[in-house]
Amino acid sequence: MIGKSMRFWIVRFLTIVGILLGMFFLSKIITDNLDSYYYQILIQCGIFITLAVSLNLINGITGQFSIGHAGFYAVGAYVGASWTLLWQPRFLHSAPFLQMGTTFGDAINLVIALVLGVLAAAMAGFVVGLPSLRLRGDYLAIVTLGFGEVIRIVVLNIDEVGGARGLSGIPTLVSTGGMAVFWVFLLVIAVVVLSKNLLQSVRGLTWLAVREDEIAADAMGVNTTKVKVTAFVIGSAFAGAAGVLYAHFFTGISPDVFDMNTSIVITTMVVLGGTGSVTGAILAATLLTSLPEMLRFLKDYRMVIYSLSLIIMMLTRPQGLFGTKEIGWKSFHRRRRTSAGGSAAA
């Protein structure tokens, strides 16, 4: 007989395998059939969804006002690109499993780049998370913004990574074998599942408690220090991973890609989606990534319309698209059940 916990693990294992296989074939199909322009937008959407949902962990769920997310994105991108472009060819060019050009070697190298980028970004997140213990609200916001700018300026001044020109000719490890959708959306699934599970767990409740009232949470025995720093570390780790994928898909990175505007766009996605709502962040990220592309027919008026729509959305829907709600199978289900319950009571 199979025990209950055993069955749980088998189901979980099968789900993961199923998702991986499904993603694998979906990736093949999309790569073969989609026009390259839309393909790039799709990948860009995936990367920005990861960024928005990971910032939502810090901003939306834990309530720490961070607006410098592009800094962590930059750290990931540069460290990952440094591995494939500088360190691997210089130090390990003859290592047996690390040859780039084969499907397997590319995957291994990408994973190593991801691990390094994630570690570096998480470390940066830890460093930024520390001041969050002392700073609150707007002060924290400006420190995170400043940190993002400092990272950009430091990168600008390192000749090894190209300075203002940036790095170009990064091998397209992500696209090898038509796997770009697979890698990017695997990351999206990872960050979404993590957020969702967090929101449904006791640990997630402590994070929400820090957002709602830090002092009360502290009084109730929540280790607020640990929660805040953990949120920063996890959020920035995912941003770093998104950076690695960006670098290895678009093959070129420069400090301009990671400037203040990028940080602001990511923050806007979180607020527009409804602070704390994961599905909202996903929708807003998709919308804000594709909106400038959709508005291309407006030519010069494009960015004016874009900024106006930003203002109008904030004025007419201050709580964001979804508020703090989520949409999904469960919310439909619950709504039906409550309405059924309501009618029964009546």
Binding site: N59, F65, I67, G137, D138, A141, I264, T267, T268, V271, L272, T275, M303, V304, Y306, S307, L308, L310, I311, M314, L315, P318
Partner: peptide
């Protein structure tokens, strides 16, 4: 929410720049 006001301010800033 201060975030809302912040995003509105960013929208105005973008509007002035692009305008």
């Amino acid at each position: 929410s201060r975030l809302n006001a912040l995003i509105t301010a960013i929208g105005v800033s973008l509007l002035l720049e692009n305008g």
